[in-house]
Nucleic acid binder design. Sequence first.
DNA 1: CAAACTATTCAGC
DNA 2: GCTGAATAGTTTG
Length: 93
Amino acid sequence: MMTPFAKKVYSIVAKIPLGQVRTYKWVAKCAGRQRASRAVGTILKNNPYPLIIPCHRVVKSNKTIGGYIYGEKRKKMILELEKGIAICLANKE
DNA sequence: CAAACTATTCAGC
DNA sequence: GCTGAATAGTTTG
């Protein structure tokens, strides 16, 4: 099921640049419900395309890992990888 | 750490 | 439809 709030969340999260991270609160605020940070987490884990939605770029407010379908450890690893990729792209340009 | 709060979903009635 | 419970959170104490 796709609620308007979820749609907005997907659109916003999908636009997060490589190597960048956002917080659940930030996403919730952009989606129009700053207090719905919790719903963002539930939505992201129930998202229809967990592979094309960079949920690993969404973290808690204190930058700690909230959760991840493949495990918090993978999420952290992916974040480090993307950070390196972003630097590589920046150097190339 | 525990409690309250929030938006959404799900099971039961 | 409503209520109660649950969730990858946040805030307050």
